[in-house]
Deep mutational scan, measured.
Amino acid sequence: SLTLTVRGEEAVRRWYKWAQAHNLEVEVETHGDEYVLHIK
């Protein structure tokens, strides 16, 4: 499992696509303009 902090929706989309390509689940938490992604 992997936890990432990114800024901006574009980065979130990029990681989301990456995770889907690897059959992984993604949980997204929003903290202001930062997003915490939990990839499992």
Score class of each variant (00 low, 15 high):
Ser1Lys: 13
Ser1Val: 15
Leu2Pro: 04
Leu2Tyr: 12
Thr3Ser: 10
Thr3Leu: 07
Thr3Pro: 04
Leu4Glu: 02
Leu4Gly: 02
Thr5Tyr: 07
Thr5Glu: 05
Val6Arg: 01
Val6Pro: 01
Val6Met: 04
Val6Thr: 02
Arg7Gln: 12
Arg7Tyr: 13
Arg7Lys: 14
Gly8Ile: 03
Gly8Gln: 04
Gly8Cys: 02
Glu9Thr: 09
Glu9Gln: 09
Glu9Tyr: 13
Glu9His: 09
Glu10Ile: 08
Glu10Leu: 08
Glu10Arg: 07
Glu10Gly: 07
Ala11Gly: 05
Val12Pro: 00
Val12Ile: 08
Arg13Val: 09
Arg13Trp: 10
Arg13Ala: 13
Arg13Gln: 13
Arg14Leu: 14
Arg14Ala: 15
Arg14Phe: 15
Arg14His: 11
Arg14Val: 11
Trp15Asn: 00
Trp15Asp: 00
Trp15Glu: 01
Trp15Val: 12
Trp15Ile: 14
Tyr16Trp: 11
Tyr16Pro: 00
Tyr16Lys: 15
Lys17Gly: 08
Lys17Trp: 09
Lys17His: 11
Trp18Lys: 01
Trp18Phe: 06
Trp18Leu: 03
Trp18Met: 02
Ala19Val: 05
Ala19Lys: 00
Ala19Arg: 00
Ala21Pro: 01
Ala21Gln: 12
Ala21Trp: 10
Ala21Ser: 11
His22Phe: 07
His22Pro: 00
Asn23Gly: 15
Asn23Trp: 06
Asn23Ala: 09
Leu24Trp: 11
Leu24Gly: 02
Glu25Ile: 15
Glu25Pro: 05
Val26Pro: 02
Val26Leu: 12
Val26Trp: 07
Glu27Trp: 14
Val28Tyr: 06
Val28Trp: 07
Glu29Arg: 08
Glu29His: 11
Thr30Phe: 12
Thr30Lys: 15
Thr30Ile: 15
Thr30Arg: 15
His31Pro: 02
His31Ser: 09
His31Thr: 07
Gly32Phe: 05
Gly32Asp: 08
Gly32Gln: 05
Gly32Val: 04
Gly32Lys: 05
Asp33Pro: 06
Asp33Glu: 11
Asp33Trp: 04
Asp33Phe: 06
Glu34Gln: 11
Tyr35Asn: 02
Tyr35Glu: 02
Val36Glu: 04
Val36Leu: 09
Val36Ser: 03
Val36Ala: 03
Val36Trp: 06
Val36Asp: 02
Val36Gly: 01
Val36Lys: 07
Leu37Asn: 00
Leu37Gln: 00
Leu37Lys: 00
Leu37Gly: 00
Leu37Asp: 00
Leu37Ala: 01
Leu37Trp: 01
Leu37Thr: 00
His38Ser: 06
His38Ile: 12
Ile39Tyr: 02
Ile39Ala: 01
Ile39Thr: 01
Lys40Asp: 04
